[in-house]
Write a protein that binds this DNA or RNA. Structure first.
Lengths: 184, 184
DNA sequence: TCATTTGGTATCGAGTCGATACTTTACGCC
DNA sequence: GGCGTAAAGTATCGACTCGATACCAAATGA
């Protein structure tokens, strides 16, 4: 037999994918847009997006071309590596995200009582971690919760990334990072 | 700000979709296969699958053609309606389902403590119900929990469907039904 | 009986996705 | 410095999804 929760997750995933056709975008395009809005500057690259989505880089390249054609993102050379590309949302991309179809899910989740919401988060985190471990995917947590994060570093910038040796703003600390490695 | 659980569901959905490329099938094909394995005989039609997946009937028609080409399902005329098609898994389809990539999710869910698992199910059910209500999707519950379900009817068959006036086996009662309408 | 609804299929265009091949740049090691 | 290899992206192919539209045949019903 199959766990009831398993079936529910499966069905919910399908419903979500159906909703993700708003405004003429595809599910994968919405996911890319959301990622770019939430990732820090070291992680707004095709490569990082590839790892986040878990698809091949060829696929990501095409999705990014589609988003660029629609004027929702911009590509520019990455500072410090002439092979790389730095991705940024345009104004239009930012505006479109206000109508993210995922907002409906968020509203539904917000409708749960507080303890249920917290328990849901904890259980989902455990399940996701197990799934990622099984396949060797990166966790992609917030910069702030990373072992390379040095808070209150106080040398011109609030914080510091000890891996890349880069200054971090307070806002940076909240963003998603490809390099994130859970603190001990 | 966005609920933590919302981000987790979003990510989990993506991971699941990535896993669903096993054995050369596509995510949609696995979903169709699973549905056909779990649906009762009144619900194993292209139309019911269309409602379940929430896509257009043209899309479903193509997915079913792909599954038929691969020898995983069979189409036969529906009894009682010469327009309709009755879908059934073949032996090969049944065997393939034993290696359902969704099994990994189920294992992860099964790894949770019992209360967490139950709380997870309850919360997800509430969220899913809210999402379906917003868009007018069918609930698709188990036959047994339907307002048309008449248990222990004892006229040659264990139970009865009062809507279609059809006898139901014990096993039928556990299966998914398109017509399901939650009991009062 | 005849219009309408219902169950499915056919076809088109845009996009996803894995696979493979390719280009350019970076990097490690003598 | 030079060379081989790794890494970041792009290009292209084929199978498939998906919405949209058009279509056909059987059921329904006024």
């Amino acid at each position: 037999m199959v766990e009831a929760a398993t079936r529910l997750i499966e069905r919910l995933a399908r419903v979500l994918q159906n909703d993700a056709h708003k405004h003429g975008l595809k599910p994968a395009q919405w996911e890319a847009l959301r990622y770019l809005a939430a990732a820090n500057r070291f992680s707004r690259s095709p490569g990082a997006l590839t790892a986040w989505l878990g698809v091949t880089k060829g696929t990501v390249s095409q999705t990014l071309q589609a988003l660029e054609r629609k004027g929702l993102i911009e590509k520019r050379p990455a500072p410090g590596d002439r092979r790389g590309v730095r991705l940024d949302l345009t104004e239009a991309g930012d505006r479109l995200l206000a109508d993210d179809p995922m907002g409906d899910l968020d509203a539904a989740v917000a409708g749960l009582p507080r303890e249920a919401r917290e328990a849901l988060g904890a259980s989902l985190e455990a399940v996701l971690k197990a799934m990622l471990a099984r396949r060797g995917g990166r966790p992609f947590g917030a910069c702030r919760s990373c072992m390379h994060f040095r808070p209150n570093h106080d040398r011109g910038a609030p914080h510091l990334c000890n891996l890349l040796n880069e200054p971090l703003s307070v806002e940076d600390g909240e963003r998603i990072c490809v390099e994130q490695e859970a603190a001990a």
